[in-house]
């Protein structure tokens, strides 16, 4: 009997109120269809969601923690990139 493990999948769920799919966890499944059903059974049994995305974990490429300094630190002192320096006229609402 083949002892091969099923691949790992990452699960993203959009809640009823949500606009975006949020990462909720991972699971094992042999193919995308099974991953979808497993996600339905494992992650939506308490009405957590109305839409599911699954993606095989190997297809997710993560930034390298060793490079965090050069990736993220340079943004620290660039406050001018936030649009907080504009004067918003009084009659513009919902800003």
């Amino acid at each position: 009997m083949s002892q091969k493990d099923w691949p790992l999948w990452e699960v993203f769920i959009r809640s009823r109120q949500g606009l975006d799919h949020k990462h909720v966890g991972s699971l094992h499944a042999s193919d995308a269809r099974m991953a979808m059903e497993n996600a339905r059974d494992v992650y939506t049994r308490r009405q957590e969601g109305v839409s599911i995305w699954v993606v095989e974990s190997k297809n997710i490429h993560a930034s390298n923690p060793d490079e965090a300094a050069q990736f993220f630190d340079p943004a620290e002192d660039k406050v001018y990139r936030h649009p907080t320096f504009y004067n918003v006229p009084d009659d513009i609402e919902h800003m």
Partner: peptide
């Protein structure tokens, strides 16, 4: 597997 354990009990 855990996933099917949950599926069956659901």
């Amino acid at each position: 597997v855990l996933e099917q354990d949950i599926a069956i009990t659901n």
